[in-house]
């Protein structure tokens, strides 16, 4: 075989499979391949894979674009943003958590309208804060439960309202402590709880604007963090855990609610 020029590298074989070799080099590479049937078979298979990929997924181009995506591709009106926040969350939404019926927010667009975007942001931020601090071994909290009075007074002062750390011992969870987090518009409090097995849950508390209505429990899931969240009077609450199943977390959320509304 007439092999001339530079040796053929793997990148060139890949380029051959993609039909992207410069014309001047193609003959060299093909001569090289002719002398090596196994390599020729291999890179031919690569070329075949390209065709299979295009054949398999090409039909997607001809599918009608779902109306929801079309709306997202045009500049958003307010309700669109609301839907977008729901999209961001990639979550299921439970209304009336105790009843336990669920809708997948994105597969059931009707569900989006029922959820205020601000509340979904609450769930997402809470989940992020949980994911950040719950795995901490040495510094899970800023102020420990041994200084609970100071902790609660401090957080109340910064949030501008009386914040309380509910007592969850009847569900086996004891207070580890808490911290102050940046939030929008104002600071946010996070209380951390832990049971004897080291499983953790965090309660995220933020001040809500005066126009926020109270809500039922809602359920969200962000990655592996489950969240029950609700708005009650001037505070928004979100109870998050990556260690607890939904039902268990719901029981805990109910206890939190009862503790805060004796």
């Amino acid at each position: 075989m007439s092999e001339t020029g530079q040796p053929v590298g793997e990148s060139e074989l890949q380029a051959w499979a993609d039909g992207r070799l410069p014309a001047g080099r193609r003959a060299d590479v093909e001569a090289w391949l002719t002398a090596r049937p196994e390599e020729a078979e291999r890179v031919s298979a690569y070329r075949g894979l390209n065709e299979q990929l295009r054949a398999r997924f090409g039909a997607v181009l001809d599918e009608p674009v779902p109306e929801q995506l079309r709306r997202f591709a045009t500049r958003g009106a307010r309700w669109r943003r609301a839907a977008a926040v729901a999209g961001w969350l990639a979550i299921g939404v439970a209304v009336g958590g105790a009843a336990g019926w669920e809708l997948h927010a994105r597969r059931a667009p009707a569900a989006i309208a029922m959820v205020k975007p601000e509340a979904l942001v609450l769930a997402r931020r809470a989940a992020l804060a949980h994911a950040t601090y719950a795995p901490e071994v040495r510094h899970p909290v800023e102020v420990g439960a041994d200084q609970e009075q100071h902790l609660v007074a401090w957080l109340s002062k910064r949030l501008g309202g009386e914040v309380r750390a509910p007592k969850l011992e009847t569900e086996g969870m004891s207070l580890v402590g808490g911290r102050l987090l940046p939030g929008d518009p104002g600071p946010v409090a996070q209380f951390m709880y832990q049971n004897a097995q080291g499983r953790r849950a965090t309660l995220y508390v933020r001040t809500e604007g005066p126009d926020q209505r109270e809500t039922a429990f809602r359920y969200a899931r962000e990655g592996n963090v489950r969240v029950f969240y609700w708005i009650d009077r001037k505070f928004g609450y979100a109870l998050s855990s990556a260690d607890m199943e939904r039902e268990e977390l719901l029981r805990l959320a109910n206890l939190v609610y009862r503790q805060l509304n004796p």
Binding site: Q68, L69, F72, A73, G87, A90
Partner: peptide, 8 residues
């Protein structure tokens, strides 16, 4: 979902 998030 991914497309929607991407557009947003």
């Amino acid at each position: 979902d991914l497309v929607q998030d991407t557009l947003e």
